[in-house]
Amino acid sequence: MTQSNRLEDVIPAYENTLYRAALAILGDPQEAEDVVQEAFLRLWEKDPAFESPAHQRSWLLKVTVNGCKSRLRSPWRRRTAPLLESYPAADPEEQAVLEVIQSLPPKDRAALHLYYYEGYQTAEIAAMTGWREGTVRSRLARARDKLRELLKGEWE
């Protein structure tokens, strides 16, 4: 493992970012933890050379998103149901918003999270997910419309 990829430095720097992304996509804390652990394991196994910390962060997020996509395709996941009764939030208002976001399809949640919470542009999201840029923009627009409609009843 190269000096710039030392796990002791990388894990504390990126674990929360990767976990939040995986949780937003999968909606299951245990699966999100597993995907993050697999991303760090992949970093350790591959030991890629990075141009900058931003490149390293982007690579780790892409590995995490791909791991989430693999888990969502798994036949085992289709046979199970989520057990969460509530989602972690700071206050009841934020709790309601998180539950509405979790009701969106996983691909829409992924686009929203990467765009709004991680600050990536549509081209970067397209590169991470393998979607076209137009697909990313349409997923974002569709997710915003769904959120607007769902939250309209929530805030009235």
Rank of each mutant, 00 (worst) to 15 (best):
M1S: 14
M1I: 07
R6Y: 01
E8H: 03
V10W: 03
I11K: 01
Y14G: 07
N16K: 14
N16A: 13
L18F: 07
Y19H: 15
L23P: 01
I25W: 02
A32F: 01
A32Y: 03
V36S: 04
V36K: 04
Q37N: 08
Q37R: 07
W44G: 02
P48E: 12
A49I: 13
F50P: 01
S52G: 15
A54W: 05
R57M: 13
S58G: 01
L60E: 04
V63P: 04
S70T: 08
R71T: 07
L72G: 01
R73L: 13
R73I: 02
S74Q: 12
A81M: 07
E85D: 08
S86L: 05
P88T: 01
A89F: 13
P92I: 08
V97W: 05
I101R: 09
L104V: 04
P105K: 12
K107C: 07
D108T: 00
R109N: 04
A110R: 00
A110D: 00
Y116N: 10
Y117A: 12
G119H: 05
Y120L: 14
Q121H: 11
E124R: 12
A127R: 08
A127L: 10
W131S: 12
R132G: 15
T135M: 09
V136A: 00
S138V: 06
L140C: 05
R142V: 06
R144Y: 05
R144D: 13
E149T: 09
E154Y: 09
